[in-house]
Nucleic acid binder design. Structure first.
Lengths: 162, 162
DNA sequence: GTTAATTACATGCGTACGCATATAATCGGC
DNA sequence: GCCGATTATATGCGTACGCATGTAATTAAC
């Protein structure tokens, strides 16, 4: 039984395509993460530490914890304590939000910004080396395009059956 | 200064393309992992637990720890203890390797296989739902193709300057 | 205007993780 | 056939994580 008896012939194939694609994507993520982790560019930061510093550097305005949380794959308490450690190390500053006393504005210190830049340059070079060795320019653009589509929330999707 | 003075005009653009693509890919990974983690399909397993059960199910032959380690993003001690827990729960069996007394062959128990199938069906459906809602068939094939290229080791790459 | 519900973040607690290292078995040179 | 090097897995230890819950501030209901 190589073809299952389904209503539309394309249906099962589409499920299979999606699962194969996801498995391959996970494999790529694993392989590249391992490679980048092994790079000698991190200056004592974990990749998650760097992710937070990078996010703070990208947005000039001070960010709240919840904003960071949307970008980082980490629980809210986990992120709270990760930021704690970065504050203790002097890389991130907490300052009060005048309009909301619950929230704390987070921003990079000078040292945090300096480290983010240093690590970012080296890591960016490593990322570029790995990806450009494997994909053409057109493929890189395609990867970005597909990734953006995959990042969409359900709310952002056009409805199938309105 | 919008264009940096580099030797070849395409060089900086290519680095930028690669970094943008990687950032987008990380975002997609985060978004989808969050979505799948929140699914109510895991039957008490972590996604890493499932990853190990799935890998064991995929390869009918009993696997060694090191073989699993290549597929799972986890340190060797971490994987060792993860397997410990799965053995304690009765989902995985360790049996001795007759030809190598250091290694232990790992295989699914009947219960482990049953749970993997149950969870796999539900998770596979969720993966398909998420991906097919965002990508066309052609795009799914493309994603798999790009991911496979990204999974290649340096050794597998054609040399740039032999 | 008071109070319930919600939001934003922090903390207690048990578990899982990574790093360094240990243990045990196999392999290679001679 | 013996011994150093290597491979395969396990363990000690300190740290980081997620879940449940707590605390404080804001919004909403009336």
């Amino acid at each position: 039984m190589t073809t299952a008896p389904v209503s539309r012939a394309s249906s099962r194939g589409r499920t299979r395509l999606a699962n194969d694609a996801w498995e391959a994507a996970l494999g790529a993520h694993t392989a590249l993460m391992r490679r980048f982790t092994e790079d000698d560019v991190w200056a004592g930061l974990s990749m998650r530490d760097y992710d937070v510093l990078y996010t703070l550097a990208k947005c000039d305005a001070p960010q709240r914890l919840g904003d960071l949380g949307r970008h980082v794959l980490l629980s809210q308490p986990g992120l709270s304590r990760l930021v704690d450690r970065l504050v203790d190390r002097g890389l991130v500053a907490r300052c009060a939000d005048p309009s909301d006393a619950r929230a704390a504005h987070l921003s990079l210190t000078d040292e945090g910004r300096a480290i983010q830049r240093r690590v970012g340059r080296a890591h960016g070079a490593s990322v570029a080396a790995a990806l450009t060795a494997r994909l053409s320019d057109e493929e890189l653009v395609l990867l970005e395009s597909l990734s953006r589509k995959l990042s969409l929330t359900d709310d952002d999707l056009p409805e199938e059956t309105p």
